[in-house]
Design a protein around this nucleic acid. Structure first.
Length: 289
DNA sequence: CGGCCGGATGTT
DNA sequence: AACATCCGGCCG
C-alpha cells in the first residue's frame, strides 16, 4: 500500500513535472509544450513535430490549436523562399484533418500560423505549408494587420536574439462558422512571444475580421482566454507582466475586450515601412558577419 | 504552371 | 496621383 501510494505520488509528480508532454525537441521554452487546460479542447488532438516548429492539431476544428516556434536571430538571417506546397497532413487521417478541397472557394485564405517567412531552411519552409499549420483566415486580416504582427515579431527576434513563439486560433461563441462543412473558422488569432533574455512575454491578438484592430495582452490573460497554458515554464509573476512588443505599423492598437467590440485607445504611428526598414537594416547588418 | 487579386510599399 | 513591384494567396 505504501508502495502504491509512493507510486501514485511519483506518478502525480511526473504528471506535474511533465505536464505538457512532448516528443518535439528544441521548440518549446524549457522543453515544455503548451498545456491544454480546457478539457473540451483535448478531444482528438495530436502533437506533430516538424524540423523547426511543432503543432497541436485538433481533429474537431481540423486546425492547429497552437503552432510553436523557437526562433533565433541566426535563423532569420537571409530570405525565406516560399515552397507554396500547400498539402494535407499525411500523418492525420481524413476524418481528423483538413483537405485542400475544404479551403477551395471557401472565401478564406489558408492562413499560416507558423509563417512561411520565418523559415529560411527549405525543409522547414516546405513543412510549414501543411494544412495542420493553417486556419481559415480572412484575406484582409492575413494580408493586413496579421502580416504586420508577423513582421514585428521577426523584428523582435532579430533585436533580442531569441524568442519562443506560440501562435493559434480562438473559437468564441455559439455560431462558429465552418468551411467545407468541416473546418472551423476562428473568431480570433493570437501570437504569444516569450523572450528568455528578458524573462518577459506578451501576446498580440486580433479578430479574424476586416480592419486593422489588434491588442497586446499578458500571457496570463491569453491563458485565461484560450484555456491553454501557453508557456508552462514561465512564472505566474512573469506571466502577468506585459513585454513591450513593437507597435504594429499603421494599424490600430485597441483596449482588449474579451467578448465585445474593441474600443480604440491609440494609433500606432504610420511611418512608411517602419518595421520592414528595420528588418532590412538588421538583415544587412547581419549579412556583414 | 501562369494570370490574377488585394494589401502594402517604394519611386517618380 | 500614378505607376511599378513585392507579397501571400486564389483560381483555372
Amino acid at each position: 500500500m505504501k508502495q502504491l501510494t509512493s507510486l501514485l505520488l511519483a506518478s502525480i509528480a511526473t504528471t506535474i513535472i511533465y505536464g505538457a508532454q512532448t516528443t518535439c525537441d528544441n521548440i518549446y521554452f524549457g522543453n515544455y509544450a503548451p498545456d491544454i487546460i480546457n478539457t473540451k479542447l483535448t478531444k482528438d488532438t495530436k502533437e506533430l513535430c516538424y524540423k523547426e516548429f511543432a503543432v497541436m492539431h485538433s481533429g474537431v476544428s481540423k486546425t492547429p490549436l497552437w503552432s510553436a516556434e523557437h526562433l533565433t536571430r541566426n535563423m532569420l538571417n537571409g530570405k525565406a523562399e516560399r515552397s507554396n506546397d500547400f498539402h494535407a497532413e499525411e500523418r492525420l487521417s481524413h476524418n481528423e484533418r483538413a483537405e485542400l478541397n475544404d479551403y477551395a472557394h471557401s472565401g478564406f485564405d489558408r492562413g499560416h500560423m507558423a509563417p512561411s517567412a520565418d523559415f529560411i531552411d527549405p525543409q522547414s519552409n516546405q513543412e510549414c505549408f501543411t494544412l495542420a499549420n493553417m486556419i481559415p483566415q480572412l484575406h484582409s486580416n492575413n494580408a493586413g494587420v496579421w502580416s504586420h504582427i508577423e513582421s514585428a515579431t521577426r523584428y523582435l527576434v532579430k533585436k533580442s536574439g531569441e524568442a519562443y513563439i506560440v501562435t493559434g486560433p480562438i473559437y468564441q461563441g455559439n455560431n462558429i462558422q465552418r468551411i467545407g462543412g468541416r473546418v472551423l473558422v476562428p473568431t480570433k488569432i493570437f501570437k504569444a512571444i516569450y523572450v528568455p533574455s528578458l524573462n518577459q512575454g506578451a501576446a498580440y491578438i486580433t479578430d479574424n475580421a476586416p480592419g486593422d484592430n489588434y491588442s497586446i495582452i499578458s500571457i496570463a490573460e491569453l491563458e485565461k482566454l484560450t484555456g491553454i497554458n501557453i508557456f508552462p515554464k514561465m512564472t505566474q509573476t512573469s506571466k502577468q507582466q506585459i513585454l513591450s512588443l513593437p507597435p504594429v505599423k499603421g494599424d490600430t492598437q485597441v483596449a482588449f475586450q474579451n467578448n465585445g467590440v474593441s474600443q480604440q485607445t491609440q494609433n500606432a504611428p504610420a511611418s512608411n515601412g517602419f518595421m520592414e526598414k528595420l528588418e532590412r537594416k538588421i538583415h544587412n547588418f547581419n549579412k556583414g558577419y
